[in-house]
C-alpha cells in the first residue's frame, strides 16, 4: 500500500520567548501565553531559508528510508516563504540531495497546508506507477508583522516524506480534502508581511475546514475517533487544535505528541509535517494516526495512517525531532530582528 517510506524533520536552533516579544511592544506576556498556549517560537539562522530547511529535512528522510535519491521521481516543496517568487525551491533541493536530473519537480503554495498537498500529489504519482518514490516537503520561515499577534507564533522549520509502495513505515489508508474560497489570511505579491481577518480566521476558516475534512475521513473510512491512537491537527497556536479536538470529542491525551507549537511556534507548511514526524518517532507497529492539516484560503487535507512493523526496523536511521527541540539558543529581540532581516543595513 502507498505510504511513508522515510521521514525527516528540521527545526532551526534559535528561539525567542513570548516574554521577549511582549516586552518590546508593552504587552502582557501572560495574555498571549494563555490565550495562544505558546511559550516560545523557532527562528531561522541568518543563513537559513525554506530551501536550506527543506534540504536538511529531505536528507534526514532519505537516510531514514534508506533509499537511493536517484530513485526519487518527483520532488514537491510546499511553502508560503519560497525564497524566489520565480525559480523553484524544488530544483535546488533536488540537486542538493542528488535526485536530479531524471525527475519532475515543482513548488506548492497553500498557506499552511502546502506540505500535505505535496504528500497527496506524491501518493497519486506513486499509486499510478509514474514514479517509484515521491518526495513531499512542507517547510517555512513564516513572517509576522512586528507587533502583530502573528509575531508571537510565526516560526521556522520543515518536514519531508519519501512516499512509495514498498518498505513503508506507515501506510496511508485514506486521504480526503475539504476546500472552499474563504479568505482569512493572505499575502499579496510583493508584500513583506501577511494580513489576516483576526477572529474570522477561527470559526469559518480553521474550525470549519478542519472539522469538515476530518468528518469526511471518518465517513469514508468507517473508523470512529476511538480507533485512532494519535491525532495531529494543524496548529497555528497551541489553543486551536485542542479546541477543535474538544469540539469533535477527541480526548486531549491523543494530541500530546503531535502538538509542538507551544515549543516551536507555528511552522506553517512545516507544522503538520514536523508534528507527524514527532509522532512517528514514538509510534508502535499497528497504531492508527489521524492527521488533518489546514491552509488559509482555505482547505484541509485529512489522512488515516497505519504504522507498520518497519517503523522499528528503520528507527535507528531516524534523526528524531527531539534532537532539534533541545540544545536551543534563545535570542534577544534585537538579535531576532537581525535574524528576520528586519534591520536595514
Amino acid at each position: 500500500m502507498v505510504g511513508i517510506v522515510g521521514y525527516g524533520a528540521y527545526v532551526p536552533r534559535y528561539r525567542i520567548t513570548v516574554e521577549e516579544i511582549a516586552a518590546v511592544w508593552g504587552k502582557n506576556a501572560e495574555t498571549y501565553k494563555k490565550g495562544l498556549i505558546i511559550g516560545e517560537k523557532s527562528v531561522p539562522g541568518l543563513d537559513e531559508d525554506t530551501i536550506t530547511i527543506s534540504v536538511q529535512a529531505a536528507k534526514n528522510a532519505i537516510r531514514h528510508g534508506a533509499i537511493n535519491a536517484k530513485n526519487i521521481g518527483a520532488v514537491y516543496v510546499g511553502s508560503e516563504s519560497h525564497p524566489y517568487a520565480v525559480k523553484p525551491s524544488a530544483t535546488v533541493v533536488a540537486e542538493a540531495i542528488g535526485a536530479t536530473p531524471n525527475m519532475t519537480a515543482a513548488d506548492y503554495e497553500f498557506a499552511c497546508k502546502a506540505g500535505t498537498a505535496a504528500i497527496q500529489t506524491c501518493m497519486g504519482l506513486v499509486k499510478s506507477g509514474m514514479v517509484e518514490y515521491g518526495l513531499a516537503i512542507g517547510a517555512d520561515t513564516s513572517q509576522g508583522r512586528p507587533a502583530d499577534a502573528l509575531e508571537y507564533t510565526a516560526g521556522a522549520g520543515g518536514g519531508a516524506f519519501v512516499i512509495g509502495m514498498e518498505d513503508t513505515v506507515a501506510d496511508i489508508e485514506e486521504t480526503v480534502s475539504y476546500t472552499t474560497d474563504t479568505p482569512g489570511f493572505w499575502r499579496r505579491e510583493g508584500q513583506e508581511y501577511p494580513r489576516h481577518g483576526a477572529r474570522f480566521t477561527g470559526k469559518p476558516e480553521y474550525f470549519k475546514h478542519i472539522i469538515e475534512a476530518t468528518k469526511l475521513l471518518i465517513q469514508k473510512t468507517g473508523y470512529g475517533f476511538d480507533d485512532f491512537d494519535q491525532v495531529i491537527l494543524h496548529q497555528p497556536n497551541g489553543k486551536f487544535p485542542l479546541r477543535a479536538a474538544k469540539m469533535m470529542g477527541i480526548p486531549a491525551d491523543k494530541m500530546k505528541l503531535g502538538l509542538l507549537t507551544p515549543r516551536i511556534g507555528n511552522l506553517y507548511s512545516g507544522a503538520v509535517p514536523v508534528a507527524l514526524a514527532n509522532v512517528l518517532d514514538y509510534a508502535k507497529p499497528g497504531e492508527l494516526l489521524l492527521v488533518t492539516s489546514f491552509g488559509s484560503g482555505a482547505g484541509s487535507d485529512s489522512f488515516a495512517i497505519r504504522v507498520t512493523d518497519a517503523i522499528e526496523e528503520k528507527r535507528a536511521n531516524a534523526t528524531p525531532v527531539e534532537t532539534y527541540l533541545k540544545k536551543t539558543k534563545n535570542l534577544t529581540y534585537g538579535r531576532y530582528a537581525k535574524h528576520r532581516h528586519k534591520i536595514r543595513m
Binding site: 539562522g45 543563513d47 537559513e48 531559508d49 530551501i51 536550506t52 534540504v55 536538511q56 536528507k59 542538493a96
Partner: peptide, 10 residues
C-alpha cells in the same frame, strides 16, 4: 572540535 557540513545560504 568535531564538525559536519550543512547546506546553507552563502
Amino acid at each position: 572540535m568535531p564538525i559536519r557540513a550543512v547546506f546553507r545560504k552563502i
